[in-house]
Design a protein around this nucleic acid. Structure first.
Lengths: 158, 158
DNA sequence: TCTGAAAATGTATTAAT
DNA sequence: ATTAATACATTTTCAGA
């Protein structure tokens, strides 16, 4: 551990934070010295800000793999209707399933919306029959298969 | 350009690639020397592999901002039915709209599935009324609001 | 594998509120 | 009194031959 002192809570991102985010969302390995020069502050300032934003869950610097290149060729969105009193249990089970990438509580006819990634349709069928339909409390599912991603944007800050 | 020799095409990720990905998906700024030590190869090997995987679109090293911390509090999934011959046009328009994060062509009653991020419900209403419903070719939309993210996983490689 | 250049790290200090 | 920013010395990493 290096620094002992931190800003207490996160009020708002200031201009320097936004500058940092704008730079790092393009390239997570951009040298802090480069960002520092650009923003007219010292490298240590950048380092501190980045550390703090990471600690506060504002910013993550991560490697993302193209799923297709990792052999995960089939992506599906699944809406799931659940018995009201079993919702927590269902979420807990889904949480433990590796194929499940995203679980969202939503408005509408179905309470849950999940996104899954599998290698092929055989695995999708297995997932639906052996896993999802066996979860107690699940009453109805609506599977929407992804045919093609037409746009995917990770950059939130402009 | 630094390295002259490349593996020809991307057949499959090998063990070293997976090791690199496993390390970088946790921390995109992890020093190559650290990864090299861990995998028992030289730093240069790591540098080459990372460069190549990036060039091949296999791996991206990016900063991701928590949208809520950036003031984007409302996320919605929207299914969109489109007149068959207008699909391309609709996609093109949607592509140019900043709120739209994801556009996917899907199976099912609706051809398109999009994900949008806005600051608040006022902006959602504006988006629906002023933008989406004005796009020629859009015949029907189904808005599913996100109440809470229960799981979100970016790590594809285990 | 090696080597100079660049960047990251750690400490002490200063400034601002 | 606390927190952020800076200056600077040291260590580590990077990029190319």
């Amino acid at each position: 551990m290096e620094e002992k002192f931190r800003r207490s809570l996160y009020p708002e991102l200031d201009d320097i934070d936004y500058g940092i985010v704008r730079a790092l969302q393009e390239n997570a390995r951009l040298p802090f010295t480069t960002i520092a020069k650009e923003l007219g502050v010292t490298e240590k300032t950048i380092r501190m800000r980045v550390q703090q934003m990471q600690d506060d869950g504002v910013l993550s610097l991560v490697g993302i793999v193209n799923p297709v290149k990792a052999g995960l060729n089939v992506e599906s969105f699944i809406q799931i209707a659940v018995e009201a009193d079993k919702l927590d249990d269902v979420v807990e089970v889904l949480n433990g399933i590796v194929e499940v990438r995203l679980i969202v509580l939503t408005t509408g006819d179905y309470q849950l919306f999940i996104q899954i990634l599998v290698r092929n349709y055989e695995e999708l069928a297995q997932f639906l029959m052996k896993k999802l339909n066996k979860v107690p409390g699940v009453t109805r599912v609506n599977v929407i298969n992804e045919l093609k991603i037409l746009k995917s944007k990770f950059k939130f800050v402009r």
